[in-house]
Amino acid sequence: MFSFQGGFFNSISSYKALTKKVDAINDSWKVCTSILFHLAVPPHYYPEILKNLSRHGLTSKCGPKVGWSRVLVEKPFGNDFDTSVKLDEYLGKIFKEKQIFRVDHYLAKDTIQDILVFRFSNSIFEPMWNHKYIEKIEINMLEKGDIKNRGEFYDSYGALRDVGQNHLLQMLALITMENPEKLDSDSIRQQRARVIESLVPIEPENLKKSVIRGQYNGYRKVKNVLPKSTTETFFKIIASISSQRFRGVPIHIESGKALRETKTEISVYFKAPQPCLSCPTNEIHKFHQNVIRFRIQPHDGISIRFWTKKPGLDATLEQKHFRFLYKKNGVNLSGYEKLLYDAIMGDQSLFASTQEVRAAWRFITPIIKNWHSLPLHIYKKGSKSVIGNQ
């Protein structure tokens, strides 16, 4: 059964009407119903909405042993570290942590969810998942499309806040975290948080070596974008984590709008074997590496690059791939279908915890505060690379 109750964020009568509607449903069903609030609104509306929901008794269970009240909160979870803390503190006054579901829809994508199973359910990969064998990790989230009609929002946030603080750092956590040992939300979220907390801060004197920012040509002509805006539509960060497992492994995090192609993927580059049988000595490092690639979009799946002998009389190597595509194997549900289902079931595995959000902002905020010290590279739409404007 579906029913609709319209209203406005700042209208007391709207909350009274909503309370009356919920009470009527409880009376007609003769049960204490559960309520899931989905705040798909900008964060500055949260305080007013939550305050009014609480005042009208909508955030509390209607019975001691039945029914529940939960809230889905969309990103961005604040604007920097301080604002995220204030937002969490406000949420914490009304809801307990187990009632708060911070949405990062990338965590619900099949390839993202499969990273942990791929790593920790296959003995052939996990023993090599460390700095002894891995040379670098690349996490890319690139788009051909521009910001379209999101000028007002995008100009106040930029690419790093929009996707770097959440999607990309969550992908980094999954690809580098320790084995949670159990597939429960507390264990998984705790291990993700530990990785994000272990990110090595990028000091101001190292910013130019580790961070690049860019803006596509024509961005400033978009409606509601400031004429002299310095908001980034592209960024690249070379990060590192202080864990024993990944000590010294560079992690390249990159995202941008209006580029040559659309793709989101994680690539794990393994060190070339030494000595390498049949590898040309002048190309060993560049071309003869094994690569495991988790493609999130398009054509989501997993591929492994390896090398084999080319048929013939000599020992020439050729590149081959093992590939697995999700669309050819079973039913694909949308990310939000999974998230809504898990929120109803009370499973927080695919939702960011307070600890994760604060750790992410703790790493990102100093970079944002020092953006002004970095050159803003203007690149053409359709470029492959921001540096060199290729």
Rank of each mutant, 00 (worst) to 15 (best):
K381N: 09
K286L: 07
T83L: 07
F294L: 11
G388T: 02
P227L: 15
F324E: 03
E337K: 07
E337G: 05
G92W: 01
F363I: 00
R295T: 15
P311M: 04
R295S: 11
G158D: 04
E74T: 08
I35V: 15
E135F: 01
R119L: 13
P250T: 12
H288Y: 14
E138C: 12
H38M: 08
A108M: 12
Y379V: 09
K86A: 14
D347C: 02
K75F: 09
R260F: 06
V195P: 00
E152F: 13
A108P: 05
L339R: 01
F118G: 04
F234I: 07
W68A: 07
S229L: 04
T365G: 11
A258Q: 10
E138F: 01
V222W: 00
Q297Y: 09
Y336K: 10
I115Y: 02
D300H: 14
N389Y: 02
K109R: 15
P311R: 04
L317A: 01
I368V: 09
F270G: 00
K381Q: 11
Q244Y: 06
A108W: 09
N206Q: 13
L50N: 07
I188Y: 01
I296M: 03
V195Q: 02
D82F: 09
V225T: 08
F77G: 08
K320F: 01
N130G: 06
F322Y: 15
W29S: 07
K182A: 10
E261Q: 09
C62G: 11
E318V: 02
I12L: 13
W29C: 13
I196W: 01
F324S: 05
G151K: 05
I344G: 05
K96N: 13
P275K: 06
S11E: 12
Y15G: 03
L226H: 15
S267A: 15
P180T: 04
I368N: 06
S334G: 14
I238L: 08
R102K: 15
Q390D: 12
D347S: 06
G7R: 08
S243M: 04
P227D: 14
S187W: 03
N130S: 13
